[in-house]
């Protein structure tokens, strides 16, 4: 069992566990969005979970590092915090900050990180770039809010875990990247109605159940997928 130091605290953990998981298990919070046990290899897309390890030239993402004997880890150095703050500010610059009307209010991972890193939810100095489509209603049971999504990919992963294949996917690229449900209406068994794993895993409330099922009915036919444009 490797023994090592995190913020001057001695920690023991099983060989083969990632540093991020060990820290979180030991009540050392490292901001993270896309990490989920079981995503192998980790997606490393949020660029939040940086730490400094003695011997490494620059901060590294803790979700990709496995614990080793005699590691000396610091989670709270100026360099790490600067990277995290910048990453969070960039995320918030493409986020529709409207916490009052958001279902994730108070359990939102972005709020938690902003508080932890002392970053305002409306960061100054950066432009705000929002997507045109506020709500994607193409799914028969779900609504998707592209301007809340942080594109962590957890929903895609859990859907695949549970149903063998994922009914959600990333589509397009760059700034235009969104989660898409293309073709979900034609699936042989749209079990989404009672599943909800994607909603539960979403750290920011970008996925929500349609408010009434009545609303879902007219959507079943005809209305076009705004993603196709």
């Amino acid at each position: 069992m490797p023994k090592f130091l995190v913020d001057n605290k001695e920690i023991k953990a099983k060989q083969g566990t990632t540093l991020l998981k060990v820290c979180l298990d030991n009540q050392i919070y490292i901001p993270n969005l896309c990490y989920l046990e079981g995503i192998d290899p980790p997606s490393v897309s949020c660029r939040m979970c940086f730490v400094e390890i003695e011997g490494e030239r620059q901060p590294v993402t803790s979700c990709t590092v496995f614990v080793k004997d005699d590691m000396v880890v610091k989670t709270d150095t100026p360099a790490v915090r600067q990277l995290q703050r910048t990453a969070l500010r960039l995320l918030l610059s493409v986020h529709h900050v409207d916490c009052k009307n958001c279902q994730a209010n108070k359990k939102c991972e972005l709020q938690r990180m902003a508080k932890f890193l002392k970053v305002g939810l409306k960061p100054k100095g950066l432009g705000i770039y929002l997507r045109e489509v506020e709500i994607d209603r193409s799914h028969p049971f779900l609504d998707y809010y592209p301007n809340r999504c942080v594109l962590c990919g957890k929903c895609v992963h859990v859907c695949r875990e549970k149903n063998g294949q994922s009914a959600l996917t990333f589509s397009k690229r760059g700034f235009d990247t969104v989660i898409s449900f293309y073709g979900v209406r034609d699936l042989p068994t749209p079990e989404c109605e009672n599943c909800n794993v994607c909603i539960d895993i979403c750290p920011v409330g970008a996925l929500a159940l349609k408010e009434t099922q009545k609303e879902a009915v007219p959507n079943l036919q005809g209305e076009e997928d705004p993603n196709i444009a």
């Binding site: 294949q165 994922s166 009914a167 959600l168 996917t169 990333f170 589509s171 397009k172 690229r173 898409s180 449900f181 293309y182 073709g183 979900v184 034609d186 699936l187 993603n227």
Partner: peptide, 22 residues
């Protein structure tokens, strides 16, 4: 055509769509 391809490869249409839009 996307439907046809998805059926041939036994994957969901959305996966084909995701790759194609990239």
């Amino acid at each position: 055509a996307i439907k046809l391809v998805a059926e041939h490869l036994a994957i969901f249409e959305c996966e084909v769509y995701g790759v194609a839009t990239f």
